[in-house]
Design a protein around this nucleic acid. Structure first.
Length: 829
RNA sequence: GCCGGAGUGGUGGAAUGGUAUACACGUGCGACUCAAAAUCGCAUGCCCACGUGGCUUGAGGGUUCGAGUCCCUCCUCCGGCACCA
């Protein structure tokens, strides 16, 4: 036997696969298709660490397995190279982002090449390639035409460090997700995408997806749909009405005051209107100014509620026509609902806290159906349960204590003709009664789509003094990103492109008059919102994707990545649904199945980062241990979705495994080993099912069990070894390919058929059966798996240990589960 | 606070309601070696009176012949959302 030389084998086969274009993919309607995709990386300057390839190894294994099963596999790779990371890297290293990106891509590709992936590199794409971003711009134009891309001048999140506007999804609390700087609110002309139009469909279609539950939940939370009602409150002596949104119209009779957000338009108009009845304008203006200075963190949290009453005016509760005070308070958010609420201190904790602080009246309108709920809170002063006064006493007490505990469900009281209704009934009837309308609101905000930065797709719009914003005609796409002298962000709210007068000054497509180009660029998430479609047809010059190719490949069957539970996956679903609506794609969802990957931490348990000096480079690990051992180790570390720390000592286990598998070649005999048949067929079953389910750690365990069995046997039949190699091929593509060739095969193992198992061979003829007495194992018997229950029980009773235990009492039950267990129940006498 | 997930040896972890701790790392002992590394073999949950013994899957209850797994109560940790009316 030749010494195992992983470097030689890896080099040989990586070269051979390239030369023979083994992984080149074309459409083939005679085969079922599998589209297996990684979330493509942005090529950072630091290169890959051992955490990056984990997902790529999984998709590599899965796609090889699918190909061997006879599927036509699409498994491509590309680069998400626009955006702040690439631009910041370029700024720091004083090179043009385009140059930096090219260099980084080369580094990434070189590192990936050592791992032996089966990507079809002829389909490689980069979001920064004009032939690609032409279509990113095209999608924007289609949205613009449908009114889904519009200009807005609302205040948006602004990162003073990155010097650009950000979407809500780009925030981590109230800080910039990229740099950690606290964001400010800034009023800038912005392009916004109307993602909220798709909120309901994105919510509903989650049910169609084979995705991890926690990601679906995260998306549901992010969309944050709440159903309720919009109700108008009149202002005494005025035509102005205040519209509130509430999920609890059933509590309307308990609304004892109202609150406007400091940003509410009515507040400024009341303050600016010299004729308005508000008597404490100065005080209110001061409060509004103070609130505007606070960050959202300062406004949020459990801190005391503050506010100021609009003195001189009152609102009318439309349910009972009572006059109620109006407050301005920053616990009400301008950006959610209508920016105004009806306050029900008896049944809402925030309103209760505010009411306590400002000594406002609370009025209970719901009483629990089971009055005894209150019992534990008011233990004293209650008559005996049998007393006829008990119920009325409880009722009085519950009224008194309604603010605490907060009653949220039950029966209505203090609500005139609605008394006695359930909460659900009352919601409908009271809304109707006051002429409100059913309304739905979302936490999801429209997507702020402009970035005041250089390194992104130019937004294909021309601003004409006569015609306003005009779409760049489609035949003029792509609008190329020009080279600029300085691509440093200006910080003024203008893009660096604004200084490129030659580029900016153009003519209006409508009238031919002088006009200016839009100088903002698209956010990093634009290209990644549709790139998976381009892999299906990467060189198409006339369409984003050809209809036939889209029909053949869509949707992505398995999509693998970590992070991005919300952002990328929400954006991509939104764009996909839009493309579905305009007939570009044929499926309603882009990613049928999603597998979430857990990260690999450094050996010290922290994140791998240059900053901590704990980065492990995969290329070095592969040089020392081999690509196949590296791949298997990453899969064997634990369940795929778990985050686990790297352990250099443990990789020895999978290195030994590969070397021992190599050594089996000397044990191969012409005749099959009948002793190995059961474990071999069990392994075919287990490995197939586990790869299908992304349980790679247990697939590896089973292959180790199989290997241990072969070594113990000391020999294995030629045909059996052939099966073993094919089972191992997706995990260890280099080593198995070499051994496969040594067996005399001339075609690659990676296009050999995946083995199938014979169900008849899964069970051995003799099984070890445990015998339990009262749930404790007292003996283990070797029984034929075909033994009847009578035979099995008789054999068990004959066992001396069991005889002894059974004699200690009266046998009440005997159970035999064939091949597994015999169980006796004995009652003591 | 709400939602989602998880608590199993020294470590990573395994287990359609059926012998808990598979597989691997680590550790110990042995073989090979002048020696070491590598490799191979054996052992390795805890306790004791060392047996045909007792205990053990975060804690406590329940269902069952049988519970890591199902049900109830609670604790802890991780992740997401959070003054969202």
């Amino acid at each position: 036997m030749e010494q195992y030389d992983h470097k030689k084998i890896e080099k040989k086969w990586q070269q051979r696969w390239r030369d023979t274009k083994l992984y080149r993919t074309t459409e083939d309607s005679s085969k079922p298709k599998s589209y297996v995709l990684d979330m493509f990386p942005y090529p950072s300057g630091e290169g890959l660490h051992v955490g990056h390839p984990k997902g790529y190894i999984a998709t590599d294994i899965y796609s090889r397995y699918k190909r061997m099963q006879g599927h036509n596999v699409l498994h491509p790779m590309g680069w998400d190279a626009f955006g702040l990371p690439a631009e910041n890297y370029a700024l720091k290293n004083k090179v043009h982002p385009r140059v930096a990106v090219e260099k980084n891509i080369a580094t990434f590709k070189d590192q990936l090449a050592h791992i032996g992936f089966n990507y079809d590199w002829e389909r490689e794409i980069s979001t920064t390639d004009p032939a690609f971003y032409k279509w990113t711009q095209w999608i924007f134009l289609q949205m613009y035409k449908k009114g889904l891309a519009f200009q807005s001048n609302e205040p948006i999140n602004w990162c003073p460090s990155c010097k650009t506007g950000l979407a809500n999804e780009d925030l981590d609390g109230n800080t910039c997700e990229r740099c950690g700087t606290v964001v400010e609110k800034k009023r800038l002309p912005q392009w916004v995408l109307k993602i909220t139009d798709y909120a309901d469909r994105m919510l509903a279609d989650l049910d169609l997806l084979d995705w991890p539950e926690h990601i679906k939940t995260a998306q549901r939370n992010w969309i944050g749909r709440s159903e309720g009602a919009e109700i108008d409150f009149a202002i005494v002596g005025s035509d102005t009405k205040i519209k509130v949104f509430t999920t609890r119209p059933d509590t309307l009779f308990g609304a004892t005051y109202m609150v406007l957000a400091p940003e509410h338009s009515l507040v400024s108009s009341l303050l600016n209107d010299t004729a308005s009845a508000v008597s404490n304008k100065k005080e209110v203006a001061a409060y509004v100014a103070q609130a505007a200075k606070k960050t959202e963190i300062e406004r949020g949290g459990d801190k005391e509620k503050t506010g100021v009453e609009l003195q001189g005016i009152k609102a009318i509760n439309p349910a009972n026509k009572k006059e109620i005070p109006i407050f301005v308070a920053d616990y009400v958010l301008g950006g959610y609902g209508t920016g105004a609420i009806m306050a029900v201190p008896a049944h809402d904790e925030r309103d209760a806290a505010f009411a306590r602080a400002y000594k406002l009246q609370a009025k209970a309108v719901i009483i629990p159906r089971n009055l005894e709920v209150l019992h534990s809170y008011v233990p004293k002063g209650l008559p005996d349960k049998t007393d006829s006064q008990y119920d009325s006493a409880l009722r009085d007490l519950s009224l008194k204590y309604l603010v605490h505990p907060m009653v949220l469900d039950g029966t209505l009281i203090n609500s005139d003709q609605f008394d006695g209704l359930s909460v659900e009934e009352a919601k409908k009837k009271i809304t109707e009664f006051v002429g409100g309308k059913i309304a739905t609101t979302y936490k999801l905000k429209d997507w702020v789509f402009s970035r005041q930065r250089y390194w992104g797709e130019p937004i294909p719009i021309i601003h004409c003094p006569t015609h306003g914003a005009v779409a760049v005609p489609e035949e003029q796409l792509p609008v190329l990103l020009p080279n600029v002298e300085s691509y440093e962000p200006s910080g003024t709210g203008e893009s660096p492109l604004a200084n490129m007068t030659e580029w900016v000054n153009t003519t209006c497509p409508t009238c031919g008059g002088p006009a200016k180009r839009e100088t903002n660029t698209m956010p990093q998430w634009a290209g990644s919102s549709w790139y998976y479609l381009r892999f299906m047809d990467p060189n198409n010059n006339t369409a984003l994707v050809g209809k036939d190719k889209e029909k053949y490949w869509a949707p992505v069957d398995v999509y693998v990545g970590g992070d991005h539970a919300v952002r990328h996956l929400i954006y991509a679903r939104f764009w996909h649904k839009f493309l579905y609506d305009i007939g570009t794609v044929s499926t309603v969802e882009p990613f049928a199945r999603l597998e979430f990957l857990g990260f690999i931490l450094a050996e010290d348990g922290r994140k791998m980062s240059k900053r901590y000096g704990n980065v492990i480079n995969p290329t070095e690990v592969i040089a020392n241990y081999g690509a196949d051992a590296f791949r298997i180790y990453e899969m064997f570390m634990g369940p795929f979705e778990n985050t686990v720390a790297w352990n250099m000592a443990s990789i020895a286990g999978t290195t030994r495994f590969v070397e021992r598998a190599w050594a089996i070649q000397d044990m191969v005999t012409k005749d099959t080993s009948p002793e190995l048949e059961v474990v071999l067929h069990q392994s075919i079953k287990k490995v197939s099912e586990d790869i299908e389910a992304f349980k790679f750690n247990t697939a590896v365990s089973q292959l180790m069990i199989l290997l241990n069995a072969i070594e113990k046997q000391g020999s294995i039949g030629r045909e059996q070894w052939d099966v073993c190699l094919r089972l191992l091929a997706p995990l260890a593509p280099h080593t198995t390919e070499e051994l496969w060739e040594k067996l005399g095969h001339t075609e690659s193992i990676h296009v050999a058929p995946w083995p199938t198992y014979d169900p008849a061979k899964l069970v051995a003829s003799v099984a070890k059966v445990a015998v339990q007495v009262n749930g404790k194992v007292r003996a283990v018997l070797e029984l034929s798996t075909t033994a009847s229950e009578t035979e099995a029980l008789a054999a068990a009773r004959a066992e001396p240990t069991i005889t002894k235990w059974l004699s200690e009492g009266r046998e009440t039950k005997a159970v035999y589960v064939p091949g597994k267990i015999i169980s006796f129940a004995v009652e003591p006498q």
